[in-house]
Design a protein around this nucleic acid. Structure first.
Lengths: 343, 343
DNA sequence: TTCATTTACTTAACCGATAAAGTGATCGTT
DNA sequence: AACGATCACTTTATCGGTTAAGTAAATGAA
């Protein structure tokens, strides 16, 4: 089947012997046009199978009603859920999302931002890669005046708004919870410290240790990435370097999984030989053995808040510099049940 | 910060006192332009921070280098992984993806297809909702001559290509495997039968039962959706209606999860009291207790094959009608270990 | 030397819409 | 009856590019 040439406003106009502007106005319910003519126009539009050309429309109207989204990956509980809520909210507000995936690669990320700007998206929503260091592209965005909102993995202080989990407080609360239960030796698989999530979660961890008079040990503070492989390496690292802590506080759910794999490989049982607490959960957690006790992030709220903020900024025509932190909630499952709480 | 007015070809042209067409050609390395001028143009483009306007470019060139993707959801192992591979392959071929999510809602799906056509995407890639019945929109796509490829959840015979798992064969192999191990009473939580995946998986199930002389029972053949809630309902249904089968063959991984939840609620252990086999797996499966034995789908391959096929069709300018079925592989874990295989 | 090519640009036309600025007829008002 | 307002369209210009069709100068072949 060959591609038919597309029906345009002009085709409809010719058919009805009127001007194409009248057709355009009729289809947009412009008050200039009589109800009678509107009806005729709409009928012929359907009859001819007219589909408007957004390219042309956006070019002349200078609005695309489109938002560019850049995420590091999607096959991950947090992002899948956040993206889903972003899409939902976008639709409700009549915006189309153009999502791109950086695959944790900074060069891709830059490329995507360029492409999205070339597409003249009305605004940008981004969660940066684990490794993003070069800020030039963001300065370019700022210079062009395109509204941008960071979420989850953010860069604060660049002149854009940020929406995150309250990582520091959540982490602090998590460790406080452990301390109150009597845990003394708490290790942390901490992720990258140049990333806001790694940094703030570690900060909450350290502050809570201090507050409860627990000692901080470099051997039990292992930096690395945010994936399963990093958790695996991290645990092996801790194991190799000396006595095992009572419990491990993992910076992300995948990191916790990796730690479990490593522990099992070493013949250690969880939570028997070593206990685990995770920052962030997963829909599958309750099917796991053990199901991990974790600090729950308000995932859909993060996505929703971020995009709502962005839409506001688009409408106001100016980029803001808000810094919104959403609260976490502890979900207790099969780990972290030391004493007192067991029954 | 106010939005700066964007730099255009004309701005560059004025600066260099040449025509805008020369600028356009220079930037595209057109042979008409001398190397010297090309260099000057490119330099000033960078200097002024020129970003091409894709809307304008696509409008005049009538190509968008963009592919529209419609999926029912993303927070689901299969789709997250398939989408990721689609994105990857698209980038490698210089296509941008515009993904939309129908949320298993047929009206949304239609709306998205309209929008994507209005955006003049070069082609469409779609996995339909659980409920899609109205074919009018697809006839419209066909009439407009926009290449479209279905994947996973498909509609065959409409004049478009389809890429799926070999559901029937995979299902047949799965049941054959069980039969050979001596399972006799095999129930099936079958999903919607108007959907190709539900239908073909059920077909393979039925054929295998016949082949191995096992009886088919309506009570053990429960239709429904493809989500966790459906698996939950399905299992309760089976439980209510009479004797429990030895094993349940779930049409999807989420359905298997739902069945497990229901079983546990009823005080039944898996695989002790009732065993489970799932069509399709999940990255988290190996952390589950029990980890399910499942028929593995070639998820990334499905995405990759579908988009490659689509790109071919776009380049050839004609929609094809291929029907590609990719093979499955059984992955044995903690369930389906009846006798003989236990050690 | 002369005429056909090639080189390196420019001008004009167009993609399919929207926005702004007319225009002639009808209407309401005093 | 006269005149501004309203109605229902039309004409013209524009968005930021691309493609097609010139054009003048330099090059080359006969």
């Amino acid at each position: 089947m060959k591609s038919k040439s597309q029906i345009t406003l002009t085709d409809i106009a010719k058919r009805l012997s009127i001007s194409k502007v009248s057709v355009s106005k009729a289809l947009r319910d412009h008050p200039d046009i009589s109800t009678k003519l509107k009806k005729r126009v709409k009928e012929t539009a359907v009859e001819l199978g007219y589909v408007p050309n957004f390219m042309a429309r956006n070019l002349s109207s200078k609005k695309s009603n489109t938002i560019g989204l850049v995420v590091p990956k999607i096959a991950h509980h947090f992002f899948a859920e956040a993206i889903e809520s972003i899409y939902k909210t976008a639709y409700q507000n009549n915006y189309e999302i153009i999502m791109t995936v950086s695959q944790e690669n900074e060069a891709h990320e830059q490329q995507h931002l360029e492409t999205l700007m070339a597409m003249r998206v009305d605004g940008l929503l981004i969660s940066i890669t684990e490794h993003t260091k070069d800020l030039a592209i963001f300065e370019k965005v700022l210079k062009r005046g395109v509204p941008l909102v960071f979420f989850d993995r953010v860069l604060c202080g660049l002149g854009f708004s940020c929406v995150t989990t309250d990582d520091e407080q959540g982490s602090y609360d998590a460790i406080s919870f452990l301390a109150k239960k009597g845990y003394k030796n708490i290790a942390h698989l901490a992720g990258y410290q140049n990333s806001n999530i790694g940094y703030h979660r570690a900060l909450g961890y350290k502050n809570a240790l201090k507050k409860f008079g627990l000692s901080f040990s470099e051997k039990w503070f292992v930096v690395g990435g945010f994936g399963e492989a990093d958790g695996y390496r991290g645990f092996k690292n801790i194991f190799k370097n000396g006595p095992l802590p009572e419990i491990i506080f993992a910076v992300t759910f995948p990191v916790a999984l990796g730690a479990i794999v490593a522990a099992n490989e070493l013949g250690l049982s969880v939570p028997g030989d070593v206990d685990i607490l995770s920052f962030g959960g997963s829909g599958y957690n309750r099917f796991m053995q053990p199901a991990l006790t974790f600090m729950q992030q308000p995932v859909p709220e993060i996505g929703q808040t971020a995009i709502k903020l962005l839409i506001d900024e688009i409408k106001n025509g100016e980029t803001g510099t808000q810094n919104i932190k959403l609260p976490t909630k502890l979900v207790i499952c099969d780990t972290c049940l030391k004493e007192g709480d067991k029954l």
